[in-house]
Amino acid sequence: MIQRNPIFPGILELNFQAREVLGCNVYLIYDEDEWALVDIGYEETVDDFVEIIRNLDFPLSQCKTLIATHADVDHIQGLAKLKSILKTTVTAHPKAVKPLREGDTLWTLAEIEAQNLKMDMPKVDVENEVGDGDVIRVGGIDIEVWHTPGHTNSQLAFRIGDVLLSGDNIYRDGCIGAIDAHHGSDIKAFVKSLERIRDSDVKWLAPSHGPIFPNDADFMNRTIDRVRGYLKMADFGTLAESWPLMDQWEDEVAAGILPEGLSTPS
């Protein structure tokens, strides 16, 4: 057996516990012998995580549920395999149910033809659907469910006391989860989710990738301002609500205006 090194009372992060990054952050929430897992990552590392859990002396039969933050392949490809090993249930947002049940490789970003990427996406059923305001109870620990869409429409975050398991909403370097229309991204919703996190009294953010960091308003505002700017930029194509440059171009074309220093050929 190995010593447990919780990052917060009742919360382990299994990559940190193993002192090796095996994939996305995998949070094990526990009280006494009962425990639940938030995300699992790729199928190829499931056995590694199971061995870590065994060595931490958690009874495999006491896993209450496997919780998916959202339905992206790098978070949930291993769900079907782990569910079979643990004989437990899967918990996710209703909008994650269909891509998980169908093993949808496009919606989960397991298949990106332009990048010659094609991964398996094993099908898995979701027994427990949760949404904003629901509570998942593990032993004596209450896990408050937040629906924080933006990165995907099924993105969930989970509050436990002063810490928010914040999914792919934001990382310590100010980056955010990828914006891609193919898996349900929404820039306006993303801004609202980031504002909600900023305005909460949560003290710490434990993301799905990378290290934990404080919930700081100035830091959050810099990211929020950048993401809000995407609504008026072409960077993410059809996800923008407008592209002011094109309005300016139409006016300039209609008026025959060229940039200063250029003139229309005579």
Rank of each mutant, 00 (worst) to 15 (best):
E250N: 07
E127W: 11
V130H: 01
T264H: 10
G131H: 00
A178D: 10
E32H: 10
L56N: 05
L28D: 01
S200P: 01
V135S: 03
G140Q: 12
L37R: 03
W204D: 01
G177H: 05
P9Y: 02
H75T: 07
G229T: 13
H93Y: 13
N169D: 00
N169W: 00
G256F: 06
H93I: 04
K83R: 15
S208E: 06
G133H: 04
F16T: 12
E13P: 00
T223R: 03
A114S: 11
D162C: 00
L22S: 11
I143A: 03
F158N: 07
V130I: 15
V73K: 00
G10Y: 09
I7K: 10
G140H: 09
D251N: 11
L194D: 00
P211W: 00
I160C: 03
H147P: 03
V50G: 05
G184Y: 01
F213P: 08
Q115H: 12
S166W: 07
K81Q: 14
V90K: 06
E111C: 07
L239N: 04
N215K: 08
I29M: 09
L37W: 09
D74G: 09
P99C: 09
R198F: 03
P207D: 06
L205H: 08
I187N: 02
G237S: 14
E34A: 06
K87F: 01
W243Y: 15
P211D: 15
W249N: 11
L28H: 05
K188A: 14
P265A: 12
T89R: 10
I29E: 05
V124P: 04
L106V: 15
N15Q: 11
I170T: 00
E144R: 14
R54L: 08
V50L: 10
T152C: 09
V227A: 03
V26S: 02
S200E: 11
T89H: 06
Y171E: 06
T69F: 01
E44M: 07
C63H: 01
L164M: 15
E51V: 06
V135C: 04
K64Q: 06
A157K: 02
A96M: 09
T238Q: 12
D48A: 15
F16A: 14
D218Q: 14
G23L: 03
G229I: 08
K87V: 01
L194T: 10
L239R: 09
A181V: 13
L86H: 05
R159W: 02
M233G: 10
V135D: 07
W204Y: 14
K203I: 00
R137W: 01
V97E: 06
I40S: 04
D199R: 13
V21C: 10
I197S: 03
F158H: 02
N15I: 09
L106R: 11
P6Y: 08
E144L: 12
D162R: 13
I136M: 04
A114I: 12
W146Y: 12
Q17V: 06
A206Q: 01
